[in-house]
Design a binder for these strands. Structure first.
Lengths: 253, 253
DNA sequence: CAGTTTCGTTAACACCATTCACGGTAAACG
DNA sequence: CGTTTACCGTGAATGGTGTTAACGAAACTG
């Protein structure tokens, strides 16, 4: 990377450091099971709450800031774990990443809720944009892209899509690296959305605890959901191999 | 129903009435976009906040109480809408109910979050039990049961299930009418769980706004998810008919 | 009627986000 | 170098939250 964003002036550097400390302290509070509050964060930084208003406009913006960084940090973890498989095996990497994502959601439900269950009003363009740059979103969709390059699984053609969806895949508002995808292949984004919906669904259900704890503990619901997606992603031949990986990762919890 | 629970004593009747008012006022506040708070509820009832502690032990219990009643009321709405199809057509009824469920989640995201995104800790047996009596859960699973009686779609046999899941379907902790299901057919509950997971997933994703607003507006993601379940529920022959119903209900929004 | 339970009050505590007026200090400028 | 300016923090205050405790009145119970 290099010193791309090392602002010359001392003031800017200090400011940047303060932002970092805000995030660090917030993550720490969350990890301790405490509530995220301006007062608590400021207090632990040796400041008073109003001082934080020099850095964030309001409480929600603090939450968004922390959410973004938590997502980034968590994604880095999953990605690192996935790297036990080579770059040319995106299917294995995706399997690992999905399980790690779930484990993270189960062990840190509060953090998960902050990042993924945080309601976003339709009108709020500010926060919608934040959503678009979600690190985890880009990571998952990139892996899907790599799998597609290898397996060329089917996806809807543009003229098969309802006009609204066509617009949505041509000019996406979701976190996905899409510029590199040729226009005529943008139907692929529909697969992104549908698979993300499925993954998000089980993980949220389990993380919020809205089902039998024994089912969560066993991981079977999650497992079945993932296995259902092997076919659509052209991974039928890898079923056995990937199932082994999946079960390994689930057992590691 | 009849005066099944009409407590003789005047006091008990008054107390019951107060509970009802608490719920009514709470729902009213939520509907107005205000926050649900003990003070606000009490204030609108012409009381002070501490008085509410004669009725609920703490704030979370107020939330749970309101959540339960909101769920009950909403379910009654969906059920009423579904009754435009006869009792012997549970597939059509389920289709209508699912769409109504989604519409409710989209138009009342705050209420939805209260009932379905409200995190439940694994240890909290109190709130877990509440979950088990969820009205909507019973309604949906009952419709699934009726469909199964007609179509006899396949479900896993008990010995095909992992032991933990077998335990879970034999002594379910989820909201499902199960007593009437013979032991050897309890594998059906696995279908309950999986389909509920899928429905819960898209609806939560859409209700919390964690995807492209245009996709939500179009209803295509939800539509596709539902259509995927026709096969597993033995409804392939009804595909065309049910799709029409589905699109009708979606358009009615 | 006397005794007890129930239901509400007021006061208080400990939090919370947020705004405002103020001061000190460090950077930026002439 | 000195002066100005912009930034970063403070303390005080406002109005909100859940929650506990001590108390009084009204309603039921014997």
């Amino acid at each position: 990377m290099g010193p791309v964003r090392a602002p010359a002036t001392r003031r800017e550097r200090q400011r940047e450091a303060t932002y970092d400390e805000i995030v660090t302290v917030s993550a720490q509070l969350l990890a301790e099971g405490a509530d995220l509050s301006l007062r608590a964060v400021a207090g632990r930084m040796g400041m008073t709450a109003p001082a934080l208003y020099r850095y964030v406009a309001n409480y929600q913006q603090l939450v968004d800031l922390v959410a973004f960084e938590l997502d980034k940090a968590a994604t880095a973890e999953w990605a690192a774990a996935a790297e036990r498989f080579p770059e040319d095996d995106p299917a294995a990497r995706l399997t690992v990443a999905c399980v790690r994502f779930r484990n993270w959601a189960l062990t840190k439900p509060r953090e998960f809720a902050l990042v993924f269950a945080n309601p976003i009003a339709e009108a709020d363009t500010q926060r919608r944009e934040l959503l678009t740059v979600s690190t985890s979103g880009h990571y998952f969709t990139d892996l899907l892209w790599q799998i597609w390059e290898q397996r060329r699984f089917p996806f809807p053609a543009l003229d098969e899509l309802v006009p609204v969806i066509r617009d949505a895949v041509l000019d996406p508002l979701i976190p996905a690296k899409a510029e590199h995808i040729p226009t005529e292949d943008r139907g692929l984004l529909w697969i992104y959305m549908r698979s993300w919906s499925a993954l998000y669904g089980v993980v949220t259900l389990e993380s919020t605890g809205h089902c039998d704890p024994r089912v969560i503990e066993s991981g079977q619901l999650f497992r079945a959901t993932l296995l259902d997606w092997l076919g659509p992603l052209g991974l039928d031949e890898d079923r056995e191999r990937l199932t082994v990986i999946l079960d390994e990762e689930l057992a590691a919890r």
